[in-house]
Each structure stands twice: as structure tokens, then as C-alpha cells.
Computed example of a mutant assay.
Amino acid sequence: MREVVLDTETTGFDPLTGDRVIEVAAIELVNLLPTGRHFHALVDPERDVPPESTRVHGFTRADLEGKPKFRDIAAAMLDFLADSPIVAHNAPFDFGFLDAELLRAGRPALDRARMVDSLVLAKARFPGAPNSLDALCRRFGIDLSERTTHNALLDVKLLAAAYLELRGGRQSGLSFEEAPAVALLATEARAPRTPRPILLSAEQEAAHRAFVEKAIKDALWLR
């Protein structure tokens, strides 16, 4: 099962008042594990970056001058997203900004049926508790030491780890190293294995037969 974990950084909170996307990051998951494939782009928002936004993500207008416009990265982003479900924390925020940028670039909006909101999942699992990405990482013991600002590429890696926990718990092999965890698991699955048959002693077989005869009338095992 392929999914894509996505995050954006923006100049503000509302695309309807002129705020723009300045960063898009996404990583690929297969069966909840990162494969090592990712998409990342810094974007020239074609406007100023307010100081209060810079304090959140660390980007200034000067950092983004000369970067591609959103219309220039839209095709590559959509190719990476393909038709997979898109996981985001407070997903309507990211979808709203991406939809505004896509429409501005003459492309259709994202299908909301693809949206997987990890914030909704977190609230259902921990009602009444703090459920920000930071709070989830602390709750699940995920290392936050590198998160000094809201960098989108780091945030999607953290969210992928938190999403795995929300979907049922950490599995061995979860890694953000360059070697894809899925490939490692596939290699292990192809390795030859030695059969280990379970053999019962005569006493164990007799005890089982006596139990079945007593507990189950006309048991199939005895036919």
C-alpha cells in the first residue's frame, strides 16, 4: 500500500488573503514504511514573507528569491503524489494552500477523497490531549532534537514516524536512511529458511485426543 506523507510551509494562514506556499515536502511510504523516495522544493512566493512567519519556519524573502515558482514545480509534485492517499497533519490547511496554488497554475485541485488527516486520527486516539506534531513525537518517544524550526522535509519524516504509531505501533525496520527499508524487508523475505516442524510426543497426542473426546461431541479431528 503506497501512501505519501506531505507538509507545506507558507507565508501565512490563509490562501484566500494572498498567502502563498514557500516549501513543499513529501515522502513515500509503502506498507507504512519509508522507501527512501522523497520530493522537496523551495518555492518563490512572489511576495514578501512576514517576520512572524519567518519566526516559525526560518525562511526570509531573500532565501526564496530565485527559487522556482510553484507553477514550475507543480508537474513534478503531482507526478510524485500520483494517485496515492496523502497524509498530512491538519490536512485541510495543506490541501487548501496546494489547491489555491494548483488553480493559480491552471491545474485541477486535489481530490479530497485522498486526504488522510493525522490530526483527526490523533484526536480520536487521544481525545482532549495535545495532538500537535511535537506533542505526538514526545508521546511516542520520537527524537525532536533537530526540529528548531518547522522545516517541511524534517516535519514529514517526523510525521511518518508518528503516523506509523497512530496506525498500530512501531515496526522493526523503520528507518530514514538511504537504504530503503522495504527493499531490506523484501531481501529478508527471499532468504532461504529452515523448516521447523512441531512434533508431538505419544503422551501429548494421547492427552489431546482425550481432551477432544471429552470437550467436543463428534469432533472432526477424530474422524
Rank of each mutant, 00 (worst) to 15 (best):
G169E: 02
V56G: 05
R196M: 11
I73G: 01
T194D: 04
I22P: 03
L78C: 05
A207T: 07
V116E: 01
L98W: 08
T10G: 01
F70C: 02
V116H: 00
A181G: 09
A25S: 15
E28Q: 14
E3F: 13
V5I: 12
R193Q: 14
A207P: 00
T60S: 09
A129G: 06
A206F: 00
A76H: 06
A113Q: 07
A82S: 15
D44Q: 02
A219Q: 04
R223L: 04
L102T: 08
E28R: 15
A152W: 00
R107D: 04
D143G: 13
F93Q: 07
A179M: 14
A74L: 05
H150D: 09
H40A: 09
K157M: 14
F126N: 01
D99I: 13
L121G: 03
V120W: 09
R114S: 02
E165I: 07
P192N: 15
L33E: 05
A88T: 00
I22N: 05
L144H: 01
L81Q: 03
L220F: 11
I22G: 03
L154M: 13
D134S: 15
T187P: 00
S53H: 03
F80R: 08
I216L: 13
V4M: 08
D134V: 13
A26R: 09
R71C: 04
F39T: 06
L158V: 11
F70E: 01
D143W: 10
P45H: 14
E178Q: 15
T187H: 10
K214H: 15
L81S: 02
E213G: 08
R107V: 07
E9F: 00
R61D: 02
E52Q: 12
R167E: 11
D134N: 12
S84A: 15
V212H: 06
F59S: 09
D143A: 07
L144M: 14
V182G: 05
